[in-house]
């Protein structure tokens, strides 16, 4: 359930976002999910890719500030209330969500939730106990 995410620093310029996408494409790294957080001054691009280690390396080689971070990736039903179950479990366990983003897989028809929490191992354990599944990335271009 814990998976590797690439976090990339972006000064607020469109060209830099292109440079990241371009570098990954050239190196045949597939982006499965992404989210862009931005402030007035800068942005953080968060990516789930098929080869995170290689992704980090090729981006760093381009002088891009990048870091591998752990996030939770789990599956949910693509239906009203689909995300609610996992969020409720986390809330009831007193685990704070720092950020999250979600995508729907083409093939499985399931939603994938990427969740950042403070205490990752504890959150993973609790979610497993409540029967939440490992994210199924099938349909994300594999």
């Amino acid at each position: 359930m814990i998976t590797k995410q690439l976090s990339v620093f972006l000064e607020n310029e469109t060209a830099r976002l292109c440079a990241v996408a371009d570098t990954l494409a050239k190196n045949h790294i597939n982006i499965r999910a992404l989210s862009l957080a931005d402030t007035a001054e800068f942005g953080i691009l968060r990516l789930i890719v098929d080869q995170p280690e290689k992704g980090r390396e090729v981006l760093a080689n381009e002088g891009i500030v990048v870091r591998l971070t752990n996030v939770l990736a789990l599956s949910a039903q693509d239906a009203p209330g689909g995300a609610l179950g996992a969020l409720r479990v986390l809330a009831e366990s007193g685990i704070n969500v720092e950020y999250m983003y979600a995508y729907v897989a083409k093939v499985s028809g399931k939603a994938i939730m990427i969740v950042q929490v403070e205490d990752m191992e504890v959150a993973e354990e609790i979610l497993r106990r409540h029967g939440f599944d490992e994210a199924d990335f099938a349909g994300f271009g594999d």
Binding site: T39, V66, R67
Partner: peptide
């Protein structure tokens, strides 16, 4: 920005600034 300064957390970067 450099890897030594960078964090995945927006608030941490704002605090750095």
């Amino acid at each position: 920005m450099s890897e030594a300064f960078f964090s995945d957390n927006v608030r941490a970067i704002e605090a750095l600034e």
